[in-house]
Write a protein that binds this DNA or RNA. Structure first.
Length: 462
RNA sequence: GGCCCCAUCGUCUAACGGUUAGGACGUAAGCUUUUCAAGCUUAAAAUCGGGGUUCGAUUCCCCGUGGGGUCACCA
């Protein structure tokens, strides 16, 4: 955006100075695992607040004493902390009963609410609750994402706002807290749209200013249904355990329902804050696509420096790796570049180890002698070629033995005989695998002596 | 079912009312120093349907259809 005239510049500054500070909140209830959808809601609230140098509040909505669990609250905190979404304030609704009580009393005093005698139809229901006196009017609000939404609140009836003076319910606590905490923007999932008219009625009754609403699209499973356990991992911590990078995970989440309008897709957390715009958030829900997550994660992986990789990788090394015969840190640090190229997330390392894809770097592989023979060449040929390979390798300097020099040494011979005829048996001699990195890279890791030793073993087998 | 919301490739998405409807993931094919991985190139793949408005609709309006949300003394 360019300033077109001094006039708009003035207006811009005027607004900067007079607009009140933006305050957003993320208000999860600790009644279950911390979901990826919740993470995205938290992210958008965070991004918006940070971008505008506002405040981001975490509010634990634990008014339901039966369903709320401390362990779930801890999961929320842990998840957000892994994601790097830090809050400026934290509040627990269970600790604010007195505040709500005051408002309930006022509502009753002002005749906006009343104590209602009930005939309990179900077990556990009370014979007396506090209901809001519905004014039966039309309510409309301008959603920042969806535009104007209108409801006829008559359909809502006299909804219950508290079970008793000390047991307020969701709609009441939300309205009171958003007001008392000075929330300017309520950014939440579209599943809350139908709560909005109730909350508007309530906030008008308590004389609260109305916040701006932004209902963000939902994240759906691949069959367009609600994301649930049967679709695979739904909790944020599961993704942490699967070895995704938090920054990549956030990047991926942000892209469901939002994009900066350019072709760029890979963003750091800082870039996300810088580029995020509520106005660019979509209306329609999006599907959680795990393949794209893998790709985004891999892109972030590629951006890491060698040191970062080394630190990260050491944290996730499976214990099985160290149990491999011949394991050494020295060899392992040599294969890090090879490993990085073949994974998209940290847990893939464990898979590589489990599938024996790393073992041969540390220890002599076992394999069937038939594997050593490339296509139509014979065992005798393979033997002959390998003997020549050794002869060539012997001429090399131990200090100067790396994938490039090995390649230089062997290349013309391989081309002369046939690349597959020479390189395939060499590669199998070193790895024992039908599939692996090329023989030059493996040679570099193994070093001259071990390379020659393994080829000799192969020759014995032929 | 009532109320509310939504609708571009399989998926995530771009496109002042004028584009050969663009990009990315995934898929397929090919290339690159044997295999695998990575990389590169190419391909297939979309404006839900019907009416308007307009010289011209992906874009604006209406009606269908489809999908989703929500209808608690849960949040």
């Amino acid at each position: 955006m360019h300033m077109r005239s001094s006039k708009s510049y003035v207006i811009f500054h005027y607004r900067m100075n007079t607009e009140k500070k933006i305050v957003t909140r993320f208000a999860p209830s600790p009644t279950g695992s911390f979901h990826v959808g919740s993470a995205r809601t938290a992210l958008f609230n965070y991004l918006f607040a940070r971008k505008h140098h506002g405040k981001f509040i975490l509010r634990i909505e634990d008014t339901d004493k039966e369903r709320s669990k401390k362990e779930y609250e801890e999961e929320i905190i842990d998840s957000l902390s892994w994601l790097g979404i830090d809050h400026d304030e934290i509040h627990r609704q269970s600790e604010r009963t007195d505040v709500y009580k005051k408002y309930i009393q006022k509502l009753i005093d002002d005749d906006f609410a009343y104590i209602s005698k009930e005939e309990p139809q179900e077990e556990g229901k009370r014979s007396e609750v506090i209901r809001f006196r519905n004014p039966h009017k039309k309510v409309s609000f301008k959603d920042l994402i969806l535009g104007t939404i209108e409801f006829d609140t008559t359909d809502l009836g006299d909804f219950v706002i508290a079970k008793d003076m000390d047991t307020p319910l969701y709609n009441l606590t939300v309205v009171v807290d958003d007001f008392e905490l000075g929330i300017t923007h309520v950014i939440r999932g579209q599943d809350h749209i139908s709560n909005t008219p109730r909350q508007i009625l309530l906030l008008e009754a308590i004389g609260a200013t109305r916040p701006l609403y932004a209902h963000i699209p939902l994240i759906l499973a691949s069959d367009r249904s609600k994301l649930s356990k049967r679709h695979g991992a739904t909790s944020v911590l599961e993704y942490k355990e699967m070895g995704y990078m938090s920054e990549a995970f956030l990047n991926f989440l942000a892209l469901i329902g939002w994009n900066p309008g350019t072709d760029e897709e890979i963003f750091s957390f800082e870039q996300l804050i810088e580029k995020f715009e509520l106005e660019k958030v979509h209306k329609g829900s999006g599907i959680f696509n795990p393949e794209k997550l893998d790709w985004v994660n891999k892109e972030h992986l590629k951006l890491l420096t060698e040191i970062e990789i080394e630190i990260a990788i050491k944290k996730v090394l499976p214990s099985e790796l160290k149990q491999i015969e011949g394991y050494s840190e020295e060899i392992f640090s040599k294969i890090i570049p090879i490993v990085i190229e073949r994974i998209s997330k940290w847990s893939d390392i464990a898979t590589l180890v489990k599938e024996g894809e790393l073992e041969y770097y540390f220890t002599q592989p076992s394999y069937d002698s038939a594997q050593l023979v490339w296509k139509k060449s014979t065992a005798e040929d393979a033997k002959k070629y390998l003997e020549k390979v050794i002869e060539l390798l012997e001429t090399m300097n131990t200090e100067d033995f790396n994938s490039l020099t090995v390649k230089d040494t062997l290349w013309s011979y391989a081309e002369e005989i046939g690349k597959g005829d020479v390189l395939w048996p060499m590669r199998v001699a070193l790895s024992g695998k039908d599939r692996s990195p090329d023989p030059f890279m493996i040679s570099e890791v193994l070093g001259k002596d071990e390379t020659i030793k393994r080829i000799k073993i192969a020759i014995e087998k032929l």
